[in-house]
Design a protein around this nucleic acid. Structure first.
Length: 695
DNA sequence: TTAGGGTTAG
């Protein structure tokens, strides 16, 4: 048996494909090819160093198939994430006539359960679990236990995962971690944290780096920066800073909670970055509106030789969408095509979103057409994109097509569909969608409720909006804000104020920055100057909120409408946040109304510095000149518009006849064209809504 | 021969 021992030693020395092949030929030469131990060793060596085809070939040639050999081939497929094949092989294993000891053991079960988890084969996994009831020794193996927990949590069955966990008297850190991450991945973030606390405080189990990754992810999802920071401290104390997955999780936590500066410092401190590190930081910038930084980092990543993956591209495309940078978006599209992940659902969807936000709907539609597996997110990106590009009339058709394709909307998509429909203002359509919401059981969703209120408000039916609002018992801040905004857009400022005070006095909801946008603009539209200013002070002094450019814009609008142009100018000069174009725009519009060319020119100058390609602002300025008879200046502006080739999107009118929506350019020909339609349909029931829509 | 983890789209 000397030769066998020699071969076994040779196995230990094998560290690449070449030496494995050499060993294989020696085994064949020395006549040990029937030795099941050597065969298994050889299979796992091939599994490590060669292609799966070679492993399979070797397996097929084996005269005897022991459970060890089966385990080796199952692992070879599982390691390569070939889950379907792993499952099929397992089925072959249990019905194999060549096998002598083909009863699956703990190794087999943990590998196959993983395949069931990845393939979401709940029933199959449950049968395997049933089989284990007769084999306690295997069932209580820690590896099988963690595989079972992972299987149940990937199938969304956390109560079953918990039952498995409770069977273990002394679960190890991996089992505890499997539960923590199971809860985290199924959206039970509080439970994940509670489970972690139990593990550490009650059971005295020392968390390792993997446990901490799941914990940090839960903190990020809950925006629990306090706990997250303390975990960061723990990571540093324990010397886990070199664990990239953990640092990436921390980076992501700061990114998600909007602490960009800290994320930036952490990012620069990471010496060896991987694609996840880069993608997280690029995504951090995109989500926080820093599109220039995001795209610069994307280029830096490529220059440093790190290959972007689909996730990186999605984040970079978001930055293009934020910046309206169509050229850069197209370049990234090309890159995605070259790298072969253009057709991945998330990439295609991000492309649709980018093209739509860069106002190039045709390119978005091209991407959508090419997509192989359109899911609800892709459909909704298209639908919202049309609304954004002033073609909300197409949205409802897309929604119908989506339902016909068997795609069911979720809560987020319902919100988007309602928002797109609100661009049209067709009451009949709103009622249909409301019916759909009710029949699909989305009634109690506060976000959907708020969208319905907005939709009915924009369709002119404030009564329906109030009905929806009063019908929801647990009113949260989103709902209150939506209703206040509803009163606001109807010019019913007093009622908006009344509702705001009711909210403050009689509800648990605390007004946030959005609520203040709603109430301030309600005051502005109704010309309630004093009340508006009072609300603004309340926001700062009573609620400690920091007004953004949007709030300042409304205050400027408020002062501007009532002719307080100097005061408005003063507010702008003292703004602690960057002045965005719309603030100067509000002042310029006010100057036009009140014929103040002097301040108007200051506003225009600043405005055009910030955004020199917005045709609307030039037109606003030229209108101001024409009202005041400054024809020379007017001519200059007009020629500047021509020179720059700027075009203002033309307003359109929509008319719905039966179930068809028709749009017209809103000029003098509008009415005759409408009449034509009337003639066309004769005595048929016409018109639900006629609305001038500025695109 | 075996385990648990980090980035993305509406």
């Amino acid at each position: 048996m000397k030769g066998r021992e020699f071969l076994i030693n040779l196995c230990k020395a094998c560290n690449d494909g070449k030496s494995t092949a050499k060993l294989h030929s020696q085994i064949l030469k020395t006549g040990f090819s029937h030795d099941s131990f050597l065969a298994t060793k050889l299979t796992s060596l091939y599994s490590n160093f060669s292609s799966i085809e070679q492993v399979q070939k070797l397996f097929d040639e084996m005269p005897q198939r022991t459970v060890y050999l089966w385990n080796s081939i199952l692992r070879a497929y599982s390691k390569r994430k070939r889950w379907k094949k792993t499952w099929v092989l397992f089925k072959n294993m249990i019905s194999d006539e060549k096998g002598e000891e083909n009863v699956p053991d703990n190794y087999t079960l943990s590998t196959v359960l993983k395949a069931c988890a990845e393939l979401q084969l709940l029933k199959h996994g449950e049968i395997l679990h049933g089989f284990l009831w007769k084999h306690e020794k295997i069932r209580l193996d820690l590896f099988v236990g963690s595989a079972l927990i992972e299987f149940y949590s990937k199938c969304g069955e956390m109560s079953d995962a918990s039952k498995v966990f409770n069977e273990f008297e002394k679960p190890d850190v991996v089992l505890w971690t499997s539960m923590v991450s199971g809860y985290e991945q199924n959206g039970y973030f509080e439970k994940a944290i509670a489970f972690f606390s139990r593990m550490v405080l009650e059971e005295g189990v020392d968390p390792d780096r993997v446990t901490l990754v799941s914990l940090v992810s839960a903190c990020a999802k809950l925006m629990n920066l306090k706990l997250g920071r303390s975990v960061h401290g723990f990571v540093v104390r324990r010397g886990f800073e070199s664990e990239l997955s953990l640092v990436n999780a921390l980076l992501n936590m700061y990114a998600k909670t909007g602490i960009v500066k800290v994320a930036e410092i952490l990012f620069r401190m990471i010496e060896v970055k991987d694609v996840v590190t880069w993608s997280s930081m690029i995504g951090c910038y995109s989500r926080n509106g820093a599109s220039v930084e995001s795209l610069n980092l994307f280029n830096e990543m490529i220059n440093r030789g790190c290959r972007p993956n689909a996730v990186t591209v999605v984040s970079a495309l978001q930055a293009c969408a934020v910046a309206c940078d169509l050229d850069e978006g197209r370049r990234i599209h090309e890159l995605a095509t070259k790298r072969g992940f253009e057709l991945e659902v998330s990439v295609s969807t991000a492309l649709i979103d980018m093209y739509m936000k860069c106002l190039s709907p045709d390119e978005a539609v091209n991407v959508f057409r090419k997509m192989p597996g359109k899911d609800v997110v892709a459909w909704v990106a298209l639908l919202s994109g049309y609304a954004l590009n002033g073609m909300a009339n197409k949205s409802i058709g897309i929604f119908k097509d989506m339902l016909c394709s068997g795609i069911q909307p979720d809560a987020v998509s319902m919100v988007k569909i309602l928002a797109s429909s609100s661009e049209l203002g067709i009451l009949h359509q709103a009622e249909c969608l409301h019916g759909y919401v009710t029949s699909s059981g989305f009634d109690n969703n506060a976000f959907i409720g708020a969208s319905l209120i907005e939709l009915y408000s924009k369709c002119g039916s404030l009564d329906y909006a109030i009905k929806v609002f009063e019908g929801i018992i647990d009113k949260d801040v989103v709902l209150w804000s939506a209703m206040i905004a509803g009163f606001g857009i109807h010019g019913r400022g007093e009622e908006a104020l009344k509702l705001f005070h009711r909210m403050v006095k009689s509800s648990a909801a605390r007004p946030n920055d959005v609520t203040f946008v709603s109430i301030l603009s309600a005051c502005s539209h109704a010309g309630l100057l004093l009340q508006g200013i009072e609300i603004f002070h309340m926001m700062v002094n009573d609620y400690g909120l920091h007004p953004g450019s949007e709030h300042y814009g409304i205050v400027v609008d408020l002062l501007g409408r009532t002719g307080e142009l100097e005061k408005a100018m003063d507010i702008i000069n003292r703004m602690p946040v960057p002045v965005e174009p719309h603030v100067w725009g509000a002042l310029l519009a006010a100057c036009r109304i009140h014929h103040n060319v002097e301040i108007g020119e200051v506003a225009a100058k600043n405005l055009l510095c910030l955004d020199s390609n917005h045709a609307g602002y030039y037109i606003l300025l030229s209108n101001m000149y024409s009202v005041d008879g400054k024809w020379g200046n007017l001519a200059k502006i007009r020629s500047l518009i021509k020179e720059k080739g700027l075009k203002k999107m033309i307003g359109q009118s929509m008319i719905e006849i039966r179930n068809e929506v028709h749009s017209f350019v809103a000029d003098d020909k509008l009415h005759p064209e409408c009449e034509k339609i009337y003639e066309l349909v004769g005595q048929l029931e016409v018109i639900l809504k006629l609305q001038l829509q500025h695109i």
